[in-house]
């Protein structure tokens, strides 16, 4: 384990120096308590204290729209396309690091998603610890994502006068060397870090009426619950919950033909199980016709199906779905309602 220290007064220099050499993105304030990951040129543009961004950093790993193939019918030519950008992402919270770990599992599963896996290796990940809850919507403790659990190159924790930085990979180490602004951590810093973590264990409690291990069992008995009928009445199917989710990965594939009607491309874009046509098939049948059934599917895709397949929750506890819901459907309230019903 290697820890280094960056003085807070040097933070702006660190980002500025880095941005002079590479594309750097970080959380930027957009007003109305909204933030988004955007390209920055200096540390001053970054909000160190921020609540989860509108879209998670997923957008760099799996862009909203991505070209997969270019074709030319007249030549019988189909060529795979790989579009990527070398980016340093600063300031990813532990919930979003967990989201990236979920995506890594999905896209490494067979058949491997080459576009995702190649792009992922071009991204350098710098995590940032939340010393306190971002707001009342977060539920990172119950899914065990409130403390760092790998998945980064560097990880920053804010101390009184400095950031203590965990160096987790060789690439992270090279970046530290390059900027020459870091010093080795001393005992006082490690003690301060231990103090932060100790406080966090006091502050962060299970946010719902059920513990980590019982959560998936709750969903074993939830399929026919009345709770989904309630959500059916409230949900407006705007799709916000899935579009902002760090672990949703559904996409649709679309062909675009150019006006010569020979050349064109095939691309994929984010899709959502909440959209009316998502489960509609060619005969006009819709397998998840009601909004309640679609909401249930979303919850099962976070708390049941991935547990069976990947042995982990795909809810990262970031709270984005609750924060953004037009109908104010709350993840914590839904889980609590299921708990109450099963008592």
């Amino acid at each position: 384990m290697q820890y280094v220290i960056l003085k807070k007064v040097n933070f702006d220099d660190f980002i500025t120096a880095l941005a002079a050499q590479e594309k750097v993105v970080g959380p930027v304030a957009r007003g109305y308590d909204n933030f988004s990951f955007q390209e920055v040129k200096s540390g001053k543009e970054i909000s160190i204290k921020y609540i989860p961004t509108i879209l998670p950093p997923k957008k760099y790993f799996m862009p909203q729209r991505e070209k997969l193939i270019e074709f030319d019918k007249s030549q019988n030519k189909f060529e795979a396309v790989l579009e990527y950008d070398k980016v340093v992402i600063f300031g990813i919270h532990t919930c979003d690091l967990a989201g990236i770990q979920c995506l890594n599992m999905v896209f490494s599963d067979k058949p491997k998603d080459i576009n995702y896996l190649v792009r992922k290796n071009k991204l350098l990940i710098i995590g940032l610890e939340c010393n306190v809850y971002c707001d009342q919507y977060a539920s990172c403790k119950v899914v065990d994502n409130h403390l760092p659990n790998g998945g980064y190159d560097l990880f920053f924790t804010e101390l009184p006068d400095s950031f203590i930085v965990h160096v987790n990979t060789l690439r992270g180490d090279e970046l530290i060397e390059k900027t020459r602004l870091f010093n080795p951590a001393e005992k006082i810093h490690l003690d301060q870090l231990e103090e932060v973590r100790k406080k966090k264990r006091e502050i962060f409690k299970d946010e719902v009426k059920i513990g980590h291990h019982e959560l998936s069992k709750l969903f074993d008995r939830a399929y026919d619950s009345k709770v989904w009928e309630d959500l059916d009445k409230r949900c407006v199917a705007c799709g916000n919950c899935t579009n902002v989710c760090p672990s949703c990965y559904c996409f649709d594939i679309l062909d675009n033909m150019n006006f010569d009607f020979n050349t064109g491309d095939r691309s994929r874009g984010w899709d959502s199980c909440q959209n009316e046509p998502f489960a509609k098939v060619a005969t006009g049948e819709n397998f998840r016709k009601t909004r309640g059934a679609r909401q249930r599917h979303r919850y099962f895709r976070k708390f049941k199906y991935p547990v069976e397949r990947y042995s982990r929750y795909f809810c990262t506890g970031c709270g984005r779905c609750t924060r953004t819901c037009m109908a104010k459907i709350s993840l914590k309230e839904t889980i609590n309602a299921l708990v109450d019903e099963q008592k």
């Binding site: 799709g239 579009n243 984010w270 959209n275 009316e276 046509p277």
Partner: peptide
């Protein structure tokens, strides 16, 4: 597309 403008707006 038979879904809300919100979908594209979020993206």
């Amino acid at each position: 597309p038979d879904y809300a403008v919100c979908v594209e707006c979020k993206l």
